[in-house]
């Protein structure tokens, strides 16, 4: 198709939207609402993943050593732990350091720890970190076999539950999103079907004059695409506004909740909204045209 033909298609598409202004507004509104809900799911899903990742990265293995262990044995263990392929980080924590740490945790109310320096009940140990959180489970049994190791502790049970919950949430969110996208496509298809139905006589006239199916189709596709694009841009604006407001207010009231930083995160989310909204518009108009082109 030539450039002037494309210009003509756009002219036709916009003329049609002006003529059916109420239908146009209704379609844009439908896409916008759908995309806002979709956007909310994207925000939620991403933040859940983010939080899960946050907690996952904090999973550490604590190895406690037997009291009678010598410093040579400690050095040897440190070397052996480092040589394990799953282990990313080995940090020795003496019982004195452990006590200091405990003081830090308890802060002002740490008075009850006074005097423990003389007879420290804590044990020397190592803090280990694996490359990936799921490696914790495979490395723990190995650690337990080393001589001089008294105990191995890790937060695995909690992480497994967390994984299960986030996985389920993702499936539910995906299902809802698919449903919403289908509903929006259906509504746009119907909107365009009404315009197409009103113009089926015009379409048959076009075919008598020798217009190809694509010549007839393009203005409708551009119309659907524009409806989808405007609707999803409106939705993107709302999503950006909402998320920034949410981040601002949560930073004050719930500072421990680690929300994903708005930028460039929102760029990705709204990018998906615009892409999907536009695609819905195109698919909707293509579906509704198919029947009327057989003349």
């Amino acid at each position: 198709m030539k450039i002037r033909t494309w210009a003509y298609f756009h002219g036709q598409a916009f003329a049609s939207m002006r003529r059916n202004s109420w239908m146009t507004i209704a379609s844009i509104g439908t896409v916008a609402v759908t995309m806002v809900v979709f956007g909310a799911f994207l925000l939620l899903a991403n933040n859940i993943t983010h939080m899960a990742g946050n907690i996952e990265s904090k999973v550490e293995i604590s190895v406690y050593l037997q009291d009678e262990i010598t410093s040579e044995e400690i050095d040897r263990l440190a070397q052996e732990f480092t040589s394990l392929e799953q282990i990313a980080l080995v940090k020795y924590v003496s019982k004195e350091e452990a006590l200091l740490r405990m003081r830090d945790w308890f802060g002002e109310s740490s008075d009850f720890l006074a005097g423990l320096e003389m007879d420290n009940p804590l044990r020397n140990g190592f803090d280990l970190r694996t490359h990936r959180p799921e490696q914790v489970l495979e490395v723990v049994p190995i650690l337990q076999t080393f001589d001089g190791v008294a105990d191995v502790q890790y937060g695995q049970g909690i992480v497994e539950q967390l994984f299960a919950v986030t996985g389920m949430l993702r499936v539910i969110a995906l299902g809802l999103m698919l449903g919403l996208a289908a509903a929006a496509t259906f509504i746009i298809a119907n909107t365009i079907r009404i315009t197409v139905f009103a113009r089926r006589r015009e379409i048959s006239i076009m075919k008598y004059v020798g217009a190809t199916d694509w010549f007839i189709r393009w203005p409708f596709i551009i119309e659907g695409m524009t409806l989808g694009l405007i609707g999803s841009l409106v939705a993107s604006g709302l999503v950006i506004w909402f998320y920034q407001a949410a981040v601002r207010s949560l930073a004050v009231s719930l500072p421990v909740l680690p929300l994903v930083k708005p930028w460039p995160f929102l760029l990705g989310v709204t990018g998906w909204l615009v892409l999907l909204g536009t695609a819905i518009g195109v698919v909707g108009s293509t579906i509704s045209l198919r029947r009327f082109l057989r003349v």
Partner: peptide, 8 residues
């Protein structure tokens, strides 16, 4: 003119 636009 539509008939001519159709044939580009």
């Amino acid at each position: 003119s539509f008939a001519m636009k159709v044939v580009e």
